[in-house]
Structures are given as C-alpha cells and as structure tokens.
C-alpha cells in the first residue's frame, strides 16, 4: 500500500526509520527542479535540497498540516535558495550551460518526450533566474500566482509580470512565435 506524504511524515515521527527516506525520494525530483532553477550552480542547488530535507527531517514535528507536506518542504527550500542567492549576489555566479540538463536522464524516455523535454529545459535555462522560478512554480508545479508570490515573498503582480515576460521569451525560443512580426510579439 502506498502511503501518503502525510502518513510518511507521521510514520517518521512515530519512529519508522524508513519513512522519511521514502518521503524524501518522492519529493526530491520536484524539489530538485525548483532548486535547479532558483540557483545558478548545480552544486548550490544540490546543497540546498539536502539542507531542506535535513531541516524537514529534524523539524517534522513542527509541520501543522495547513499545507501539503510538499509545500511545507518547498517553503523551506525556497527560503534556503533565496538566502543563498542573496549571499551569492556579491559574487559572480557561473551561469548554467544550457545543455546541462542533457546529463539528467528521465525514467520516462520516449523519443518525442525527450525532445520536448530538452527543448523546454534548454529554453528555460536561458531565462533569468527571477523569471525561471515563478514559471517553474506556476506553470510546472501548478501553484497559483498568489501562492507563488507568498512563497517567493514578492507581490502577486511581480509574479505575473515575471511569468508573462518569461513565457513570451520561452514562446519565442520554442519557436511558437515565428509567424509573428517582431513588433507584434511584445504587445
């Protein structure tokens, strides 16, 4: 029987030594997606995900079930990522190579899906981080703009603006705007 995230967290608190590992394995791909697009360095992203999982492991008793377990851990992760970005802002970050995601195979691998994935990931990697993260949260993980705004600590309008600018740029990079004249693309 597959246990829900909440059941796994409860089992972890009840002393089940395997529950949190199972929960972390389940959450990690989505956390990785966010961290990868919130931070410029893959190493930073990996450390951020690990830090978030450790804090969730140790702070599990503080989860109040007012949100999903994933949203709770995501909040921890986003805070860590934002802290790291603030710290890194005085340094020169090395941008991700756009083909960095090629090295990360998916467990689903039909050719068409893979081609789609690479197109999307490469295009996404070309956006500035401040546009990538709202798009990942809203368009890829399904959060409402208000929820994404709360997570990121920015106004709703800013989330919308960043999503809008990012989508327009993605549409261009994905080739969906090729039939439009340049002057009309930015109306």
């Amino acid at each position: 029987m597959i246990r829900t995230d909440g059941e796994l967290l409860a089992a972890h608190l009840a002393g089940d030594p395997h529950a949190f590992a199972e929960l972390a394995d389940r959450l990690m791909p989505r956390l990785w997606l966010v961290a990868r697009h919130a931070l410029d360095s893959q190493e930073d992203a990996a450390e951020a995900v690990q830090d978030a999982l450790i804090r969730a492991h140790q702070g599990a008793g503080g989860f109040r079930a007012e949100s999903s377990v994933y949203s709770w851990v995501l909040r921890i992760l986003v805070n860590i990522c934002l802290d790291r970005r603030r710290r890194n802002s005085i340094r020169t970050a090395t941008p991700l190579p756009s083909d960095d995601f090629d090295e990360l195979p998916s467990h689903r691998d039909p050719i068409a899906e893979r081609e789609l994935r690479l197109d999307v990931w490469q295009a996404l990697a070309g956006l500035p981080p401040e546009q990538r993260l709202p798009i990942v949260l809203v368009d890829m993980q399904g959060y409402a703009t208000a929820e994404a705004a709360a997570l990121l600590g920015i106004p709703v309008g800013t989330v919308k603006s960043r999503c809008a600018r990012g989508r327009l740029r993605l549409a261009e990079q994905l080739g969906h705007l090729r039939t439009l004249q340049p002057a009309q693309e930015h109306r």
Binding site: M28, P29, R30, W32, L33, R36, A46, V49, F101, L104, P105, S106, H107, R108, E113, L116, R117, V120, W121, L124, I135, D139, M140, G142, L170
Partner: peptide
Amino acid sequence: LAAAVPPAP
C-alpha cells in the same frame, strides 16, 4: 511547460 517531465535529481 506543464507537460515537461522533470529531470531526475
């Protein structure tokens, strides 16, 4: 974007 399969960690 919604259909894209996230890369594995």
